[in-house]
Structures are given as structure tokens and as C-alpha cells.
Amino acid sequence: MKSALIWTIQIILIPVLSPLFTGIIRKIKAGFQNRVGAKITQPYYDFWKLFQKDEVISQDASWVFKFAPYIIFAVTIMIGASVPLFTSIFSFNLLSDLLVVVYLIALATFFLALAGMDVGSPFGGFASSREMTMAALTEGGLISSLLALALAAHSTNLFSMVHSASSLSIISFPPVLLAFFAFLIAMLSETAHFPFDNPATHLELTMIHEAMILEYSGKRLALMEWAAANKFLIFLALGVNMFFPWGLTASSESTAILTALFLFLLKVLILCLLVAVLESSMAKFRFFRLPDLLLMSFILSVIAIILMI
């Protein structure tokens, strides 16, 4: 019974909390811009509003456009249920593999790019092209940063990696920090944040993520936006739990679970603050300068791997 309850929390935690963290980022950014900003719960109201609305779909849309939001949202739910969040009870999960998680993220990106091109809008097409370029360049840094931990753990299972990283001594921690910085760069690229993309922009020529979902409205737009929020929280969770792996519980006691949940939220909030500060303190890079940053992420990961071996 208890384990069913913990399993349910594990599955719903990402979709339930993800809009909140999007709201927190927006609130902090508003603070930096001397604005009051909307409430941190505003994304919940936005999603609710979108689910209530009727839809306008392009007459040129095929089944790819219509089904992509469901597939992308489902992928984020699957990943959210597979990654280490607050408990290590479900370490036997076959989906909790580093490569499975990374390529499920790639699958969602693939469908997002297909949906962007499907209706034949030039903006959607160019955004898909940019997104696939970024995704191809980010993958190396993302996999290598996590591979540093996988090599230390001799396993690509995310839970084994967390367990191994938590038993590392202080001396072996600098490579983990290097890998974390590489992961942070890859995370900003994957989740469409500064300096890679502007999640709040409405200027078509600079958009990547937003231009791909330009044709969506109503419930499908809500699913797309919600999936993007889920993806952001998944990356935050991976960032804090893989590189700073303290606080996960192996016990199914209520107190231990609540403490682990509190610690998880605290860690994610700190990383969220870091992302918001980064977003507010730098400008968006030119598109063709971004590969340099992603190459830096890859080089940092390779150094981390060499130091780990």
C-alpha cells in the first residue's frame, strides 16, 4: 500500500510541480526587471484557461501535428516517473537508464520538430531546423556529463549513479563539479533558456521553441507548454540529484519520505534560483555563437571523464 502511494507520488510529482517552478523563474526574472510580476501559481491558471478554450487547427495539419502534444507530454511523464526524485526504492526500473532517458528526451524533440514543420509555416520550419541543430550539438555534452558519473558507478542506471556519487570523497568531487557545469550548459540549451533561447519572447525571428508551437492553441498548446515545464523540472531534478546526490531515501517511512521530499524541493529551488539569476544577467547569444558554448560543455565533460577514470 505504502509503496503504491510512493509510486503515485513519483509519477505525479513532476507534472504537478512543474508549472510552479516555471512561475518561480518568471517571478524572479520580474524582480530583476523591477516588475511585480504575476503570481508564482500563474502557469496553473494559464494551463487551466487553455484547457477551457476551443481550438483552431491549421487545415494543412496532419496526424503528426495533432498527436505530437500527447506523445511529447507522455514522454515527459515517463521520464519523470523514471528519474531519481526523492526516493531510491524504484532503482530496479528498466527505464531509469541514462541512455533511455537521454534518447526519450531526443524522441520528444524529434516530434516537436516534426510538429513545427507539419503545417508548412516557414517560421515553424526554421525553428525546427534550429532546434534540431541545437539538439544535435547538445547531445554530446549532455551524455558525456552524465557519463562521467556512469563511469564512476560502473553502471548507467541513474539510481546506481546517484548511490555511487553520494559515496564519493571530497577529493573526487571537483570532476563532478566540472560535469555539473557541462550539464548546466546542456540543460539551458535543452530547456530553451537564456542564452540559447528566450522562453518569453514573441518576436518570431529570434524564437526557437516558441516558433515551433506557434500554430497550437487550446488544449494542445496547454499540453505543449506543460510538457516544456515538465522537461525543465526533470532537468532540474537530474541536476540536483545526480551531481549533489544527498537526501534521497531508501526507506518507505512517512517521516523519511516527507524529509526527502522537502530536501528535493529545497535543492531544486536553489538550482531554479541559479537559472533565474543566469537568465536575468545575460543576453541571448547569436545563434552561430551557441556551438562554442556547447563545445565548452563537451570539453568540460571530457575533462571530468578523464579525471574520473
Binding site: 476551443d54 483552431v56 487547427i57 491549421s58 487545415q59 518570431e204
Partner: peptide, 11 residues
Amino acid sequence: RKVRLGCTWDC
């Protein structure tokens, strides 16, 4: 909710 067919956004 209703679904309406429309044109692709053409700026």
C-alpha cells in the same frame, strides 16, 4: 471544446 479549421499563420 470545439475544434475549428483555419489557415496557417501567414504574417
